[in-house]
Computed example of a mutant assay.
Amino acid sequence: MFTGIVEELGEITAVEPLADSARLAIRGPLVTEDAVHGASIAVNGVCLTVVETRDGIFTADVMKETLDRSSLGALKAGSRVNLERPVRLNDRLGGHLVQGHVDGVGTLISREPGERWDVVTFSLPEDLARYVVDKGSITVDGISLTVVEATKDRFSVSLIPTTLDLTTLGHKVPGDPVNLEVDVVAKYVERMLGDRVAP
């Protein structure tokens, strides 16, 4: 479980394609300082398992389904990525509950620079629209954000200077893909209500 508060802006140092997967090598001195084999680290919002660490770099295997269903398949050496270690039970929950399970991929549509922040709009897959509401929570590339406005096919967020400086969203341009994870609470509520909720 994660919070969507990015700890470190990492960098892909190598991508090794395998038969039905890929092995990523990722530079992240902060998140690797206490990482061991089998530990979890969220990479652009995708929970990955550490295979090994060395000199501030960790490797992780990514199966084909994850490559196909997230933006990780588009990563290459030099790509910047958001990194977060799992939350500890005694930590403050600074963002919201994030599982590291990507629900879909969106695309950055536009960004409107302001004096202190940017308003950024992303496409929203149709099957996720019912979980995204104005002033609700959403995870974009592993970043916990508050939705400004949501429609049936897009949503917007406001990015403060800290988010622009310390995450990949400060560098994304229109057309770039992003991983989306909707608020898990909304999915559980829908499941509990069952047939009483119209699809």
Rank of each mutant, 00 (worst) to 15 (best):
L75D: 00
L30T: 12
V178L: 12
V51G: 11
A198V: 15
R196K: 09
P161N: 09
R85A: 13
I138T: 02
V50M: 10
A22S: 14
S123M: 05
V148H: 09
V133K: 01
V157I: 15
V182C: 14
G194K: 09
V46E: 06
H171A: 13
V132I: 14
L18E: 15
V15A: 10
F122E: 06
K64Q: 15
D118W: 15
G104N: 07
H171D: 12
G56P: 05
R92V: 13
D103R: 00
L166I: 03
D134C: 02
L145M: 11
H171R: 13
T168P: 03
E181K: 06
P125I: 11
V46W: 00
V98E: 01
V36A: 14
L164W: 00
E126T: 12
E65V: 00
A14M: 03
G95F: 01
G94V: 03
G28P: 07
V133P: 01
D20M: 03
P125W: 14
H101G: 10
V51I: 12
V147S: 12
V140R: 02
V105H: 05
V132H: 06
V189K: 00
T139K: 01
V98A: 07
V140H: 04
P177Q: 04
T151Y: 04
V197L: 15
L124F: 13
I5A: 08
V15F: 04
V50P: 12
